[in-house]
């Protein structure tokens, strides 16, 4: 009565190995991306700004920070209008020195984005490491790290950054200020931002540490650093990705704020924040475009990155819960 062997059964869903791209395109993540027009738009905006910033030397009509290319006669040209003296037309107008604002924004975005990414990377590495150690070791190590994090959180990020800048100004000789400023900026933003990563990673680590696959590794004597790196880290990266995206927007804004306050990048290498600071001097004399366009760019960039982060959080969440 025994008919055929059961091997005829699993005919459905053959496990054909597919390429990573095919899997991605078929994945839930991609699907939820495509179904959200705002997200697609945000991604396009971010992509456009990134590409434009990257290719600034190619795209920009002039190098705005090479004094040789500037013509003082072009100063205060209104957007899309011919200059009354030279007859030159600039899309977004010029500033007091006759600098093309479009070019300035492209170059400024470069600095802003560079600082943003670097600061996020620095904060993430620091925060993830401390979070993993705190969550896995527990006990006094955990208490120490998390208390430091608490103290850090009780200061506004901007104050922390200002403090670090103050120390830097006091310690480093003035000759090096301009050169090192950008690194200090990255350090300052990174140090003011690691706490979120540490907290998130710590709580995920606490959850993963008690899962049986980690215990199974402990039973056979896998050393703790290996467990952290190979087993736990890949499983806590989901939430980190979300924080990092939103953190990128925050870092870019923080950089601009610091530059606006005059403690950021030097005017020789201006970022969006520097442009805004310079531009606001002319706001009340009627030259509104000098502050408006860098400001809009910053807004667009930060908003788009934030929207991407929000989508990522929502898209990853049900998967994590499942």
């Amino acid at each position: 009565m025994r008919t055929e062997p059961p091997t005829s059964a699993p005919a459905a869903a053959p496990p054909v190995p597919r390429g990573a791209l095919a899997r991605l395109l078929d994945g839930d993540l991609f699907h939820s991306f495509i179904r959200s027009p705002i997200t697609v738009l945000s991604a396009l905006v971010v992509l456009a700004i990134l590409v434009a910033a990257l290719l600034a030397p190619v795209i920009a009509p002039q190098n705005p920070f090479d004094p040789a290319t500037l013509n003082l006669m072009d100063g205060f040209t209104r957007p899309m209008q011919a200059n009354e003296f030279t007859g030159n037309v600039y899309w977004l107008g010029t500033d007091a020195q006759g600098r093309d604002l479009f070019s300035a924004i492209l170059y400024g975005s470069r600095v802003s984005i560079l600082v943003g990414f670097a600061a996020v990377a620095f904060a993430a590495v620091l925060g993830i490491t401390l979070g993993l150690v705190a969550g896995y070791r527990g006990g006094w190590v955990d208490s120490l790290i998390m208390r430091v994090a608490d103290v850090q959180l009780s200061f506004p990020a901007i104050l922390v950054a200002l403090l670090i800048f103050g120390v830097f100004k006091g310690v480093v000789p003035p000759a090096l200020h301009d050169k090192a400023a950008i690194y200090v900026l990255i350090l300052a933003i990174g140090l003011s931002d690691w706490v979120q990563y540490a907290r998130t990673v710590r709580s995920s680590t606490l959850a993963e540490r008690n899962k049986e696959y980690v215990q199974a590794a402990r039973v056979i004597g896998v050393p703790a650093p290996t467990i952290l790196l190979r087993h736990i880290l890949p499983n806590v990266m989901g939430p980190v990705l979300v924080i990092a995206t939103i953190g990128l927007a925050l870092a870019i804004i923080l950089e601009s704020t610091l530059s606006f306050l005059g403690v950021g990048v030097p005017p020789t290498q201006p970022s969006l924040g520097t442009l805004i600071r310079v531009g606001q001097d002319y706001l009340f004399s009627g030259e509104w475009w000098i502050v408006l366009f860098p400001g809009l760019t910053l807004l667009l960039l930060a908003l788009s990155v934030n929207l991407l982060g929000d989508w990522l959080r929502d898209a990853l969440n049900p998967r994590l819960r499942r």
């Binding site: 049986e212 696959y213 199974a216 890949p234």
Partner: peptide, 18 residues
């Protein structure tokens, strides 16, 4: 340690999903 091993309760948690 080589000479003993453990099997856990929850087969959904005892394999590293990654």
């Amino acid at each position: 340690r080589r000479r003993f091993q453990m099997i856990f309760q929850d087969p959904y948690a005892s394999l590293n999903p990654r």
